Simulated scan of single mutants.
Amino acid sequence: MSEFNNVSVVKKANVYFGGNVSSRTIRFADGSVKTLGFMLPGEYTFNTADPEIMEIIDGDLDVLLPGSENWLTITGGQSFDVPANAKFTVNIKTATDYCCSFLK
């Protein structure tokens, strides 16, 4: 899906890591929430509350998922799942555009 229809957007950006990662929150009529974001090259560690699906729209990164000792390479068009109450690290190789879906 290349666009979302009939949504509300939180105007204030979510800004992390000195501005190297930013996103906007998108709310759907059914109560689901996603963020659309952009990450500049660098290494970033995130904590989750809810399970997430990280869809990489464009870019190139490695991700270290909870419980794994091996980094996975992810490129545009791919995604990865993150469990609830977890920590994961991404190593962004090229500017990366993403969509994060929060699952409940």
Rank of each mutant, 00 (worst) to 15 (best):
E55H: 15
I74S: 04
T45V: 11
T89H: 07
A84D: 04
T25P: 00
F46H: 00
V7N: 03
M39Q: 12
F38Q: 08
T73R: 14
A29F: 02
L103K: 15
V33T: 13
T75R: 10
S23K: 07
E69F: 01
S79D: 03
K87I: 10
E52H: 04
E43A: 08
K104W: 03
Y98R: 09
N47E: 15
L103R: 13
N70G: 02
V82T: 10
Y44P: 03
D62Q: 11
P41T: 01
F102I: 06
K11I: 06
K93T: 01
L103Q: 12
S23D: 11
V82I: 12
T89G: 03
N70L: 09
L64E: 07
A49G: 09
G18R: 05
V63D: 04
V7T: 12
K11S: 10
E43G: 00
S32L: 03
I57F: 00
T25D: 01
G67M: 08
G18N: 15
F38C: 13
G77E: 02
T96V: 02
C100M: 14
K93M: 07
T94A: 10
G37M: 07
G76Q: 06
D62W: 06
R27I: 09
V33E: 15
P41V: 06
V9G: 02
F80R: 07
C100N: 11
E52G: 01
T48S: 10
A49K: 14
L36I: 15
L40W: 00
E43I: 14
W71E: 12
L64I: 07
F102V: 01
G18T: 11
V90P: 05
N6L: 06
F38R: 09
G42T: 07
A13G: 08
L36A: 15
S32C: 03
K104I: 11
V7G: 03
C99R: 02
D97E: 12
C100H: 10
Y44E: 05
F46D: 05
P66W: 04
P51D: 02
L61R: 03
N6Y: 09
N91P: 03
D81T: 13
A49H: 14
G19E: 04
K87T: 12
F17W: 13
G19C: 11
T48Q: 09
A49D: 07
T89W: 00
I26C: 02
D60K: 09
V15L: 04
T48W: 06
F28M: 11
N85E: 13
V63Y: 10
E55M: 07
P51V: 04
D50K: 15
K34M: 12
S68T: 08
C100G: 04
V90T: 12
K11E: 12
G67L: 05
W71H: 11
T73E: 07
M39V: 02
S23F: 01
I56C: 06
T96E: 10
A29V: 11
G77T: 08
V9L: 13
P66I: 03
T35Q: 12
E3F: 10
V7W: 02
S2E: 15
V21Y: 09
R24I: 04
A13Y: 09
V21W: 07
I56V: 15
P83N: 11
K11R: 13
A84I: 00
L72D: 13
S8C: 05
S68E: 13
D62E: 15
